[in-house]
Simulated scan of single mutants.
Amino acid sequence: MEIHESAENYLEAILALSEKGSVRSIDVAQHLGFSKPSVSRAMSLLRDNGYVTMDENSFLILTPAGREIAETIYERHRLLTQWLTWLGVPPEIAAEDACKIEHDLSPETFQALKDHIGKHPQLNQG
């Protein structure tokens, strides 16, 4: 299943924010630094495509398809940030760069990176 990078970012944000509690569109807007109308439009598209639902309290809920995408991107983000930080990149820059890289890596390259990190315990310190 192929979706746009922007949709992946929205789904990843919902997942990350949901670790702290219920998520509304305004939370996503603040997290990503986007306007509320832009996020509302994106949430409408994500709902129409079956990635997100909204409950009676206007809380956003990832569907299984949305959660799968969000977890994949979030895992990539965390691992890439950890790896870049280990290489000596300042944490803030590592997180920004990971956000740029996470969408473009092939599954094969990401798996190779995961395998490499798994073989080097010092990389798992993050």
Rank of each mutant, 00 (worst) to 15 (best):
residue 75 E to I: 12
residue 77 H to W: 06
residue 110 F to C: 00
residue 43 M to V: 14
residue 51 Y to R: 02
residue 41 R to A: 03
residue 103 H to K: 06
residue 93 I to M: 12
residue 88 G to Q: 08
residue 49 N to Q: 14
residue 87 L to T: 06
residue 69 I to T: 12
residue 54 M to W: 02
residue 94 A to D: 04
residue 47 R to K: 09
residue 38 S to N: 10
residue 46 L to F: 00
residue 90 P to K: 01
residue 79 L to M: 12
residue 58 S to Q: 10
residue 66 G to V: 08
residue 49 N to F: 06
residue 114 K to T: 12
residue 77 H to M: 05
residue 100 K to Q: 04
residue 84 L to N: 04
residue 97 D to R: 13
residue 106 S to Y: 13
residue 55 D to L: 03
residue 78 R to W: 04
residue 95 A to V: 06
residue 81 T to I: 02
residue 54 M to L: 11
residue 120 H to L: 10
residue 80 L to Q: 00
residue 97 D to H: 09
residue 95 A to K: 09
residue 81 T to N: 06
residue 41 R to C: 00
residue 54 M to S: 13
residue 117 I to Q: 06
residue 67 R to G: 05
residue 85 T to M: 08
residue 52 V to G: 01
residue 82 Q to S: 10
residue 76 R to G: 02
residue 71 E to T: 03
residue 71 E to D: 11
residue 114 K to G: 02
residue 97 D to S: 04
residue 56 E to L: 02
residue 118 G to C: 01
residue 45 L to Q: 04
residue 118 G to P: 04
residue 114 K to N: 11
residue 104 D to F: 09
residue 46 L to Q: 00
residue 76 R to S: 13
residue 96 E to C: 01
residue 44 S to L: 13
residue 97 D to L: 15
residue 103 H to Q: 07
residue 71 E to I: 03
residue 76 R to Y: 10
